[in-house]
Write a protein that binds this DNA or RNA. Structure first.
Lengths: 141, 141
DNA sequence: CCTGGATTTTAGCCTGTGCTAAATTTGTGT
DNA sequence: ACACAAATTTAGCACAGGCTAAAATCCAGG
C-alpha cells in the first residue's frame, strides 16, 4: 500500500511492497513461536486455522519465509524458526504485548484492544514504542 | 495479510484482502481531498508523486476506486470524489488527525508521529479512537 | 494552426496472497 | 503389513498492486 515514507527503490520491488512482506513475516514468526511454545512443533495446518486461510496459502507463505531466512522446513516436515526468525518473533511478541497493554491502559476494552493491537503493532516505531512503555510505567497503578 | 478477525469468505476474495483494499481507498481519498483542497483539482501525477509510485500504478488504482464508487473520472480528466468518497475522506482525515495528535500527546516527536500515524490510522477501531479522544481532552493542557 | 511537452492510456511483465481440486506422502491403528 | 486418514505438495486460477516502454491524447506557446 502507499504511505511509504521511504523513497522508491531502484529495483523491482518498492519499499512499500517489502514493508508488507515484513508484516507477514512478523505475524507468521510470532504465531509459529506461540504454536511451538504451546504444542512442541508447528505444522502448516496449525497456522492455517490460526490465520483462517487455506493450508495451501500457508504452505507457500512458509516457502517465502524459508527463502528469506526466517524459518527452516523440510518436505512434509514441521516448521522451525531460524535464529533470525526467533529474534524477530521475540521482538514482535514484545511489541505486541506493549501495544496491547497500552491500549488497555488508555481505556480500550481487552477484546477490542486485542484486535486493534494486531493491526497497529506493525506500524509502531521504536520511538513510539518507548513512549508507550514510558506511559505504562508512569501509570502503573 | 493475516490477523483477519472476520471469518474466511466463501467466495473469491477473503475479508483479509478487502481490508487491504479499504486501506488503499482511505489513503487515496484522503490524498485526493487534500490535493483538491490545495490546488483545485487532482490529477494522477499528483498522487504518483505523493505516494512515490509510478503514474501507471496510480492510474489503475484510480480505476479500481472508480469501480468501487469512491471516485469518478473521465478519460484524460482529473479525479473527483463521489459523495461516498468525500465522506470516507473526511472520516479518514479526522481519524488521522486524532491519531497524530494523540501520539504527540504521549511524547512522540512530530516527525515520527507523522509517519507512524499514517500506518496506525487504518487499524484504529472506533472504540480506540474514542479512547484517544478522551485522553486528548483530559490532557488538554 | 501546429508542434512539443506534459499527461494519460495501453500493453506486457512480475511477485504476493487468496482459492479449489487432485496427487502425493506420512504415519497410525488394527 | 496394510489400509486409511491426515497432512503436504502440485497444478492451476484470480486479483491487487508494483514496474517499464510505447502509444495516444491534451493543451499552450509560438
Amino acid at each position: 500500500m502507499p504511505h511509504s515514507r521511504k523513497r522508491r527503490d531502484q529495483g523491482k520491488h518498492s519499499r512499500i511492497r517489502s514493508d508488507h512482506a515484513t508484516e507477514i513475516a512478523e505475524d507468521y514468526v510470532e504465531a509459529i513461536a506461540e504454536v511451538i511454545e504451546a504444542s512442541g512443533t508447528c505444522r502448516a495446518v496449525d497456522l492455517a486455522s490460526r490465520f483462517e486461510v487455506s493450508h495451501v496459502t500457508v504452505n507457500r507463505t512458509i516457502g517465502r519465509l524459508a527463502r528469506d531466512g526466517w524459518v527452516e522446513t523440510e518436505p512434509y516436515g514441521p516448521v522451525v524458526l531460524t535464529a533470525k526468525g526467533k529474534q524477530l518473533a521475540r521482538k514482535a511478541a514484545e511489541r505486541h504485548a506493549v501495544v496491547l497493554k497500552f491500549l488497555m491502559a488508555i481505556g480500550v476494552r481487552e477484546s477490542v484492544a486485542k484486535i486493534d493491537s494486531e493491526g497497529i503493532e506493525h506500524h509502531v516505531s521504536p520511538e513510539t514504542l518507548d513512549a508507550m512503555r514510558a506511559f505504562l510505567s508512569e501509570h502503573a497503578d
